[in-house]
Design a binder for these strands. Sequence first.
DNA 1: TAGATTGTTAATCGATTAACAATC
DNA 2: TAGATTGTTAATCGATTAACAATC
Lengths: 214, 214
Amino acid sequence: MYKKPIIRLSRYKNALYRFKSLGLVRIFSDNLADAVGATAVQVRKDFSFFGITGNKRGGYLIEDLLSKVNEILGKDKITKVIVVGAGHLGSALMNYKGFPQLGIQIAAGFDIDPVKINRKAPIPIFPLDELRDFIRTHTIKVAVIAVPDIAAQQVFNIMISEGITGIVNFAPLRLKTDKKCAVHNVNLGLELETIIYFANALEKENHEDGHFKS
Amino acid sequence: MYKKPIIRLSRYKNALYRFKSLGLVRIFSDNLADAVGATAVQVRKDFSFFGITGNKRGGYLIEDLLSKVNEILGKDKITKVIVVGAGHLGSALMNYKGFPQLGIQIAAGFDIDPVKINRKAPIPIFPLDELRDFIRTHTIKVAVIAVPDIAAQQVFNIMISEGITGIVNFAPLRLKTDKKCAVHNVNLGLELETIIYFANALEKENHEDGHFKS
DNA sequence: TAGATTGTTAATCGATTAACAATC
DNA sequence: TAGATTGTTAATCGATTAACAATC
């Protein structure tokens, strides 16, 4: 499914913009590797995979590279995204300052709580009842689910039936996806649990080092 | 580094608690696979990897399985975690209701903005100045970075120098880790960018299906 | 030309899946 | 015993890394 190369390609792109803003014109695979935490070979391998070529001895022209990468990533147009659930996490996403630069526009938020509704805000927040209509009238294709787990399945069903093709789900619940829609489940609790495991493992290791010396 | 098996083990654990709360006593690899979106073989393979055995024909006793999994995951004690950055995302994490059940206790939050300080709250929020002391006096080992990217490196340096061994970093910035500390970089912008790519790909596919039939 | 860098092919590594023996 | 399930070994798949040829 080529997920990892695509993620790295996005990283390269963001690094390229930073290099560009520093006034650089050319870049080497080595620089890009450093910037994203990969290896130079992997950078070139990724480019090769997507049919991007550079100049032997001369690296890559940042401007050329950017236009090629942006084309592959489909960055030619702005993508409208909706956020369902206007709690802390939903608000965090709606207020994320980096989205315009990424070609992402948060078109609206939705919530079931009447207190949260605000039709006049820069990013308006509508009642959940209007979700289906909004997706339809604005031909929304990408959505974020940031509601409590009990509400997630219902929201998901509406999205699927309205032809949404990409969902990032933050509810701690595995949403079953058919082939018509890509779902990325992000579980913040699980992220913490995992890092705690590795932290404990390192903790133990460090103590052992102290005793035995290594 | 066995990261993936550990993540799945956490998922199994959470599923097991759900099964247990339904009154079940025994469970089969098949059930667990369904619950976490894996295959039965993979469940057994994972268990085998960690030295967990069941009963041929009889599956696994949920209670036994839980105690073994919890032991491997180091779930015998509560882990204190701090959250640095009390913006939307930091607040989302501090208010996450699921943590106590996961053996995670958010001990405190930290922010540079005086308005956010609240020493008396159930989860107190202290000024960033006090971060170093707090880590030291409370022997904190795991932390979350939820500050803007410009502040992230500085916060990170304090954490490393105070011996933190696990960090989940939400700042869109790659924090270089030495071997003494496990760092998990979560980039919400990148998550959305990635899903947009796959959504566009599916979109194209669906249209082609419409034209050519497949 | 010598040195530096790209880009590809082969090798390795790790993770998943298939096949199947063991046994309750 | 027959059927169901575990647990392991072998095969496959995918991703990363090593080696190196091409060439600017």
